[in-house]
Amino acid sequence: MDTTQLLKGVLDVAVLAAIQDEDGYGYDVVRRLRSAGLDDVGDASVYGTLRRLYSAGALTTYVVPSDGGPHRKYYGINQQGRAMLESQRASWATFASTMNGLLDTKSRPQPVRTIGEK
């Protein structure tokens, strides 16, 4: 199964979760997600998501100059971002348990026949 498609729907909540404890810059967030097991996550997808969450008011941002090299743009979660994270966490939990129930072969209910079906 192509996990990149699955990832698209949950990238927001994944990025919010990745910076909920500690602010991070673009590649930093990518690395956190990869180390958490999301190997297929694309750099640009993460950067774009950070940018969009910032536009939506869920993140704060600040620039930190790095020694000799180009500056880094850090992102941090704010109140609104935390509320968003909580709401999406609940949504994910419901969704995941529904999917688990659906996919669990042992507990799968027998299909009900309709009248007239042979």
Partner: peptide
């Protein structure tokens, strides 16, 4: 500018990342 701010820093760090 907003979208690519810090892009060089990220790319540079990435280039150093063997994984």
């Amino acid at each position: 500018e907003d979208l690519t701010d810090g892009l060089e820093a990220d790319l540079t760090e990435r280039a150093d990342d063997p994984d």
